[in-house]
């Protein structure tokens, strides 16, 4: 039986199984159809129905259940999340597990399609070490990503000493909803 205790490990293993079966397009299709459209349909219903309040409701439940370290910041026109200890990436790092190329892409892989459907765009960065930040705005709002500390103050994950070290590969997205909209490093 597949369990939920080690879910992120066999979930990540599954990405690589799918990639071998049908290439990266199949992995993207899996994130969009199986995860965004089926598994996380409760998230989509909340976000499409309630906007920022739905985001807060969904992630407050799920990040608490997964014992994540995170903060939310809501200001006019923007909802921001700073994840200081990603529970699933942390599990993979602690157990030295990597089957697929970039596990972190799965978040944009399912959150992106949900936000697109709900009329939002995403500014986002992750450092592959269990830290990331997200800013969600209406797709009619052209505001750029905030400067470090401007929105979230001392909770801004970019102000951590370990946010970007010499070896860190930082993946960035601006006004995106697609996992392949990653900006070149």
């Amino acid at each position: 039986m597949l369990g939920c205790y080690d879910f992120c490990a066999h979930y990540e293993w599954t990405f690589e199984w799918l990639r071998r079966e049908g290439g990266e397009p199949l992995v993207r299709r899996y994130w969009e159809e199986a995860i965004a459209g089926d598994s996380q349909r409760h998230a989509a219903e909340l976000i499409i129905g309630k906007g920022f309040a739905g985001m807060k409701e969904y992630w407050a439940h799920t990040l608490s259940e997964e014992a994540a370290g995170y903060t939310f910041t809501e200001k006019p026109g923007v909802f921001r999340s700073d994840v200081h200890e990603c529970p699933t990436k942390g599990f993979l790092l602690r157990n030295n597990l990597q089957a697929y190329g970039d596990y972190c892409d799965h978040c944009m892989g399912w959150v992106g399609p949900v936000m697109k459907k709900a009329g939002f765009v995403i500014h986002h960065e992750h450092n592959h070490c269990g830290q990331c930040w997200w800013e969600f705005r209406s797709n009619e709002n052209p505001a750029p990503a905030s400067a470090p500390g401007d929105l979230a103050g001392s909770s801004d994950v970019r102000q951590r000493s370990g946010w970007k070290g010499a070896e860190t590969v930082l993946d960035s997205y601006r006004a995106a909803t697609d996992p392949d909209d990653k900006r070149p490093n």
Partner: peptide, 21 residues
């Protein structure tokens, strides 16, 4: 168990993803 977490039990909503997969 070959892989261990810092919390004692898993998050049940992950069963949704297993079923969806």
């Amino acid at each position: 168990l070959p892989y261990t977490d810092t919390k004692p039990v898993g998050a049940a909503d992950f069963y949704f993803a297993i079923n969806a997969t």
